[in-house]
Design a protein around this nucleic acid. Structure first.
Lengths: 171, 171
DNA sequence: CATCTTGATAAAAGTACATTATTCTATTTA
DNA sequence: TAAATAGAATAATGTACTTTTATCAAGATG
C-alpha cells in the first residue's frame, strides 16, 4: 500500500542545493570551468565592505556592520572594453599619491579634460601626468617639485592613451 | 548522388565558436547567469596591463606592448574567505597615502606584526593605523602630525580585524 | 569555365532527461 | 504507543541528446 503521498511540503525542499536557489545549465569554455565555478560559488567575488561604525569591543568582522557587498572589478571597471591597467614607474606624481609600482586603472573613453590625470605616450615611454589645457597651452604637469612640466608645442600631437580613474597601491 | 562526403577538413572547423575553444555545460545559479556569461565572455575580467615602454608616437593602447593580462580580484584578493574591504574615514593616515573614502583591501589571516598597517576596532569605530609592537608596548600610530598615537595598556585587548594589503584611491 | 546550389560532415550550443539527494508520512515493529 | 522503516514526492545535478551553425566539395546551372 502506498506510503508518503501527494501533500503540501512533500519532497526535497527548495533551496537545499549548493547555491540555495534554482540553477540553470550554461555552456562555458573548458579552460575557464574551474575559475567560473569558483566565481559562482563565491558569489561573484563579492566581499563585504565595512564602514566606520561597529559595536565597541567587536573583536572581528561580522555581518552586522556590513555596509554592503562589493566586487572590485565591477566597482573599478566601468567598461571592460575601454579599460586597461598601467604599472607606474618613477616618482613624478608622488604628491598625487601615485608611487612606483602602483597599478593605475585607466579608461580611454573618458574625456581628456584640463585637470585630469592622464596616461600619455611621449618619446617611447608611457607617462602619467596631470593634463594642463588652458589658453591654447597644453602641458603635462608632474606633481613633484623635482620634476619639470612638459610643454606640448601647438604643432606637436600629444598621444593620450586614457584618463586615470583609480590608483591601486600595495603596502 | 552524395555531395560533400567524408574527408579530412569536412564539417564545421574547430574554434569557430563564441569562445574559440571547446565548451562544457555547467550548472550555475539563475541569478548569476548573466554575470557569469559576461565574465566568461570577457575572459574572466582580464584586462591588459602596460609597463613603461612603447614605440615613439604610439597613439593608443595596442597589444604589442602589453606586459600581461590581469584580473583585479585575482591580483588583490589572496583568499576570498579571509578578505574584506573597509571604507576610510578621516585623515589620520594621510602620510601613508590613505585618504578619506579610499577603499582598503584587508586580510584577516595575515600576521599582525610590528610595522604593519592594520584595521582595529576601538570604541565602536573602525580605525586604520600602523601597528607599533615593541618592548611590551602596543601602540596604534597615525601617519599625520595632527593626530596622536593611541597607547594600548597591557590589560586592554586590542581588537585587530586584519592587515591592510592594498589601498584603492579614486582620482 | 565560373558561379551557384545542395547535401554531407562535424563542431557548437542549448536543453531535456535520467540520476541523485533530501524530506515527508504511512505502515510496520517492538 | 513510540520508534524504526520503507515508499513516495520533489528539488538538485550532471550529462546525453537534439538542434543549430559553419564549412567543404560534388554536381547543377548559365
Amino acid at each position: 500500500m502506498p506510503r508518503g503521498g501527494k501533500r503540501a511540503g512533500a519532497g526535497r525542499p527548495k533551496g537545499t542545493g549548493k547555491y540555495a536557489e534554482p540553477t540553470k545549465a550554461i555552456r562555458v569554455p573548458v579552460s575557464m570551468v574551474d575559475k567560473i565555478l569558483e566565481y559562482a560559488h563565491s558569489g561573484g567575488f563579492q566581499l563585504p565592505l565595512y564602514g566606520g561604525k561597529v559595536a565597541a569591543g567587536c573583536p572581528a568582522p561580522t555581518d552586522d556592520y556590513i555596509e554592503g557587498m562589493m566586487d572590485l572589478s565591477e566597482h573599478l571597471i566601468h567598461d571592460p572594453a575601454t579599460t586597461f591597467f598601467v604599472r607606474v614607474t618613477g616618482y613624478s606624481m608622488l604628491n598625487a599619491g601615485i608611487h612606483p609600482d602602483d597599478i593605475l586603472v585607466v579608461d580611454r573613453d573618458l574625456e581628456t579634460r584640463h585637470g585630469k590625470i592622464v596616461i600619455a605616450a611621449i618619446d617611447g615611454e608611457l607617462t602619467v601626468k596631470r593634463l594642463y589645457k588652458k589658453d591654447n597651452l597644453v602641458r603635462l604637469m608632474p606633481e613633484n617639485d623635482d620634476f619639470d612640466p612638459i610643454d606640448i608645442a601647438p604643432q606637436e600631437t600629444l598621444h593620450i592613451w586614457g584618463v586615470v580613474t583609480n590608483v591601486i597601491h600595495a603596502l
